[in-house]
Nucleic acid binder design. Structure first.
Length: 280
DNA sequence: CCCCAGGAGAGTC
DNA sequence: GACTCTCATGGG
């Protein structure tokens, strides 16, 4: 894969980067169509993404930020070649080999996936959009104005009622409480150094964070690949395509078995499977 | 009217 | 540890 990095711009050529595969693989929510491409907001940053054939052109607020964000140091050819030994993964890799697992902001991923619980993607996007419009700084890039994801202080001070008005429903209490905790006393950064199981326990002590949300945050913000988030879709995938014998329905057990199967590449495997299932 | 959405918390045993 | 019930909201 060829990456050209210049000021406010990334040009990426090759089959292991696809704007569509990345945006529609369900890991990120703050994007929308714009002109002949998409706008994607992350933290306080913005990127304008366009794809022509196997070439992606990215205009952005900070090329170093997005170089890391798109995980451009990881060799996805190596990842996919290794996962290709699992027959069940072959069609999913052929279909979505342009996926990258993003390195998102920890705070943003945490709140996004708390909101994602028992919810659908369209509504998740709307809710997060309202939270950013209500609490995030208004910023500009190339004449395009957009909102940052709010910092923890703003989130903590917003209060339960704000989140309810943003449409989060019964999750308002969880979100308000977790925001306060993350503002005073709970160190999201400190989790980075912990072994995965310890990190899981810490994250799951937060309101609204169960197994699945926790695994999504670890995968999409902490770069942990030894996790396998299981939602309703992945439960179906497991039953239909992955388990050969002695199938179980318990999601924790499904997750354990898949991590056993895919090891350090579990996160990637899960993402290829999820994207393929959702698109078909 | 029903069912579902990238589930989690609280209660019970 | 295990079930089971409920939770707010919008779309099909």
């Amino acid at each position: 894969m060829e990456v050209l990095k210049t000021k406010n711009r990334l040009k990426i050529k090759g089959e292991y980067f696809s704007v569509k595969d990345i945006l529609f693989s369900g890991q990120v929510f703050r994007f929308r169509p714009y002109e002949d491409g998409f706008l994607l907001a992350a933290g306080r940053q913005l990127a304008f993404l366009r794809q022509k054939g196997d070439a992606a052109d990215i205009e952005c607020t900070d090329e170093e930020y997005f170089y890391r964000y798109f995980d451009l140091d990881t060799d996805y050819e190596r990842v996919t070649k290794s996962l290709y030994r699992f027959p069940a993964l072959r069609p999913t890799i052929d279909f979505g080999k342009g996926i990258r697992i993003l390195r998102q902001e920890k705070l943003e991923a945490l709140f996004s996936f708390i909101i994602s619980a028992f919810n659908n993607i369209k509504r998740i996007q709307k809710i997060i959009g309202r939270i950013c419009e209500g609490l995030g700084d208004e910023l500009k890039f190339n004449g395009i104005s957009y909102h940052a994801f709010p910092d923890i202080k703003r989130l903590a001070e917003a209060g339960e009622e704000f989140f309810r008005r943003a449409g989060v429903g019964y999750r308002a209490k969880y979100i308000a409480e977790t925001a306060e905790k993350a503002f005073s006393g709970f160190d999201l950064e400190a989790i980075s150094g912990l072994p995965t199981q310890d990190a899981r326990k810490r994250l799951m002590s937060l309101m609204g964070v169960g197994d699945k949300v926790c695994d999504c945050v670890l995968l999409f913000a902490y770069g942990r690949q030894d996790v396998f988030p299981v939602d309703t879709w992945m439960e179906k995938v497991y039953i239909q395509d992955l388990c050969s014998q002695d199938c179980c329905r318990d999601r924790k057990e499904i997750s354990r078995r898949c991590v056993q199967m895919f090891g350090e590449l579990s996160g990637y495997a899960q993402q290829y499977l999820f994207y393929y299932k959702r698109m078909s």
